[in-house]
Design a protein around this nucleic acid. Structure first.
Length: 479
DNA sequence: TGAAATGTTGGGGCG
DNA sequence: ACGCCCCAACATTTC
């Protein structure tokens, strides 16, 4: 536990992916020292995997919001840039800080740098304490009878829930501190440039989002007030903007904790199991990442290692731009580009399309999502791509191939979603909006659509691509 | 948290 | 009335 302070030297709260004041265990521990606080964020410039462009945009706004909440309770926010270890050394030297607190991260690079920093600080008699601020349980905590980690979601979540339930009752989420004691001496600050210089893309994607702790809790509350009741079905309809919680970017930045979500959902009158099980998938991803540090680069199932992916930059580009000729896929890819987020139903379809119809390596898709998703979560992004590819733990089997227009006909029956993001098809009748290439000439003409000009022909033929994927899959397994 | 192919059943048209 | 075929509609299996 926290040592008794022996001087009035400051303590450092190192914010990372926990950009909130409430239910922040590291922050509360720092506050409990009664020392003046240095509330620090370091934009780390030596990460093995730099933040994606969309995530930087989110971070820009989220940090502003954090700084102002800190100010409201009397603290000073300190923003720095550089390699974490060097920045910490500098801040400690300037301030004489004697203690530091942070919440853990779980990707290999983060674990390694944190443990090096911790060892180096402890060598110099700086008190270091770390906490779990972003997960319901630690990824090493939920074990099978045999003592390993769970590799299948359902039994994992059952076992995890049994730990989480009682723990939440015993330790409900922490209140935000009412008052912070600021460290008064002026420290060197950095200005960050996180927004892209020449595009107005960043302004567009952030529209309709409110990064920050307040935005996160507002969104959770409004979701729990109504939409959660219908979640089980509504979550499948991408045109339904309130069908899902859309908490992912907030959660990834740590503006809200899964503990707060669990608690609030359980307090509600409605059955929130389905919704919470999605939080469970996030937890499960972290279990997989923790035990498989190379989850973003390496097939979890190594029998995928000899899969012969195609190199096809033109198709990859068409996919990223939403120009595949399959309206449902294109709507999803354009939603991602325009809003920094994509509905989950559509994520599965576009990923399946890239991997199976185009036979392009899932890592290329993962990389694009990493760069364009406001949330870009290191665990969930990798685990989910591997899920679709079939190479992951408890994954969809490779032969389960989504029909890129059938999914549209089922989940975007009236074409609202397609019309919103693929406006060049907006005058197509419902019957053909998912399959313009099947439409009679007169119908196309009337809708002002010329295939190959105003909207592309499908870049691959569905049935052919499906069969090609199945046989390529068999080949890779030597069948 | 699929989709397509294949199999089965039963009603209706029709010689 | 009967057998035969066609083909929905549904179930099962295969990928």
């Amino acid at each position: 536990m926290t040592q008794k302070k022996t001087s009035n030297a400051p303590a450092i709260m190192w914010f990372r992916r926990d950009l909130r004041l409430a239910d922040n265990p590291a922050l509360m521990a720092a506050v409990d020292t009664d020392r003046p606080l240095i509330l620090l964020y370091i934009y780390e410039t030596d990460l093995e995997r730099p933040l994606g462009a969309a995530k930087k945009v989110w971070l820009h706004h989220s940090l502003k919001s954090l700084a102002s909440s800190i100010k409201e309770v009397g603290g000073n926010f300190l923003l720095r840039e550089g390699p974490a270890e060097a920045v910490l050394d500098d801040v400690i030297e300037q301030s004489g800080a004697e203690a530091i607190f942070w919440n853990r991260r779980y990707e290999a690079d983060g674990i390694e740098r944190d443990s090096n920093i911790k060892a180096s600080l402890q060598d110099r008699d700086i008190e270091v304490e770390t906490f779990n601020g972003s997960l319901l349980t630690e990824p090493w905590e939920v074990e099978t009878q045999a003592g390993g980690y769970y590799k299948v979601f359902t039994p994992y979540w059952r076992a995890a829930s049994q730990i989480i339930g009682p723990r939440m009752s015993a330790n409900p989420p922490l209140e935000a501190p009412k008052k912070l004691i600021p460290f008064k001496k002026n420290l060197k600050k950095d200005e960050l440039e996180l927004l892209p210089k020449s595009l107005d893309w960043d302004e567009q994607i952030i529209t309709n989002w409110s990064p920050g702790e307040k935005g996160a809790s507002d969104r959770l509350n409004s979701f729990l007030k109504g939409p959660v009741k219908e979640y089980a079905d509504a979550r499948n309809i991408p045109s339904n903007e309130t069908g899902t919680s859309r908490l992912s970017p907030h959660l990834a930045a740590g503006e809200i904790s899964p503990r707060q979500i669990w608690q609030a959902a359980r307090e509600g009158k409605h059955d929130a199991d389905k919704f919470l099980s999605e939080i469970g998938w996030r937890e499960f991803s972290y279990v997989l990442l923790y035990h498989n540090p190379e989850l973003a680069e390496k097939n979890y199932k190594s029998d995928f290692d000899n899969f012969d992916w195609r190199t096809d930059t033109a198709s990859l580009k068409a996919w990223t731009k939403g120009q595949t000729g399959y309206p449902f896929v294109d709507a999803g890819m354009r939603q991602l580009w325009q809003t920094g987020w994509m509905h989950n139903r559509v994520r599965m379809v576009v990923a399946s399309f890239l991997i199976k119809h185009l036979l392009i390596d899932w890592r290329d898709g993962e990389g694009w999502f990493w760069d364009t998703l406001l949330e870009a979560d290191p665990a969930a992004n990798s685990a989910s791509w591997q899920w679709v590819a079939g190479s992951g733990a408890d994954a969809a089997p490779y032969f389960r191939i989504f029909n890129p227009f059938g999914q549209g006909e089922k989940f975007d029956e009236d074409g609202d979603y397609v019309r919103k993001f693929v406006p060049e098809l907006k005058d197509m009748p419902d019957k053909y909006i998912q399959t313009p290439w099947k439409a009679p000439k007169e119908v196309l003409k009337k809708a002002g659509v010329t295939l190959g000009e105003t909207y592309p022909e499908p870049i691959v033929e569905h049935k052919e691509a499906r069969e090609r994927a199945l046989s390529r899959y068999k080949e890779s397994r030597g069948e």
